[in-house]
């Protein structure tokens, strides 16, 4: 009797788990499915060979990649160094002040970040709609994630590893490089990927700062508006023609593929970084 009751509660529990899993996966599948269905007629080589002026996405894809690369170069090093500083070197009181700073930054709505960047960089500095203004605005959004994940990844490294390095007479920097950082790298890499993914998907800050252009982006940082994918999704949806709607959906598909590629790269980097850390001492 008791055994049968236990079997029943087991089954109910597993049923609820399966239901929760379905609730997580089904919406994702539904979104991807409907996107693909809408984008289907427009999916083809011309997306990559023509610009948005000719029902392609070339300029938007290049622009999005350029912006994300810029954010990686700006927010990556600053965020990682900031996280290392907080986890390894900061005095507790100063650390909590900096934490308050980036937590506040993380809480500011992205459209507000974009607006401020627009006022300061585009207007006050006379940069106009420009690549750099967009990169800096998105970097302000990405930075808290990178700092936080770096700090958390480092704090999870077992103390005994630090002790071992220090007890060998290594400097703090060597100890960090050889003992503490390697096991933290997968965490840091996935933090970077999440930050990049957020940036690929941002629209509002870019509307303010980089504007939009039908032409392929150049490498000039100032006074040249740049096209990007989320703008196409946003803008083409309100255009009248069916083809425009298909292009908007196609831009969505490309965004998702970009995200998958980013996640894939993140996993590869993590695996490489963890090659000696198969299992760590606890």
């Amino acid at each position: 009797m008791a055994r049968r009751a236990r079997g029943l509660s087991d089954r109910i529990f597993w049923g609820l788990c399966a239901l929760a899993l379905a609730l997580v996966i089904l919406p994702a599948l539904a979104i991807i499915g409907s996107l693909l269905a809408q984008a289907w007629p427009a999916l083809g080589g011309q997306l990559f060979t023509s610009t948005t002026a000719a029902h392609g996405l070339q300029n938007a894809i290049l622009g999005s990649l350029l912006i994300v690369l810029g954010v990686l170069l700006v927010a990556g090093p600053i965020g990682i160094l900031g996280g290392i500083y907080l986890a390894e070197f900061a005095h507790p009181r100063r650390g909590s002040l900096i934490r308050l700073g980036y937590e506040t930054l993380a809480g500011i709505p992205s459209i507000v970040v974009g607006f401020v960047a627009y006022l300061v960089l585009d207007i006050e500095f006379h940069w106009g709609f420009s690549l750099l203004a967009g990169i800096l605005a998105l970097s302000a959004i990405a930075l808290p994630y990178v700092v936080k994940t770096t700090e958390v990844a480092l704090l999870q490294v077992p103390t005994t590893l630090r002790d071992g390095a220090v007890a060998l007479g290594l400097s703090r920097l060597t100890a960090l490089r050889k003992a503490v950082l390697p096991p933290a790298l997968p965490g840091i890499a996935s933090g970077l990927v999440v930050a990049m993914a957020i940036c690929v998907g941002e629209t509002a800050p870019l509307l303010y700062t980089v504007g939009f252009s039908d032409a392929n982006p150049t490498l000039s940082l100032f006074r040249h508006p740049v096209g990007y994918l989320t703008y196409v999704v946003y803008n083409n949806t309100i255009l009248p023609s069916n083809l425009d709607h298909q292009i908007a959906a196609a831009a969505g598909v490309v965004l998702i593929v970009l995200l998958l590629i980013l996640i894939g790269i993140g996993r590869l980097v993590s695996r490489w970084a963890a090659r000696y850390s198969a299992s760590l001492p606890t």
């Binding site: 002790d163 007890a167 050889k178």
Partner: peptide, 27 residues
């Protein structure tokens, strides 16, 4: 740091560095 070279330590649980075996010995 020189003191810690002269006075070495082995810990309760093994704590090899997340580096190659060779690097652990030579570092």
């Amino acid at each position: 740091r020189e003191l810690r070279r002269r006075v070495g330590m082995l810990f309760q649980r093994p704590n090899p560095f997340p580096q190659s075996i060779r690097e652990n010995v030579t570092l």
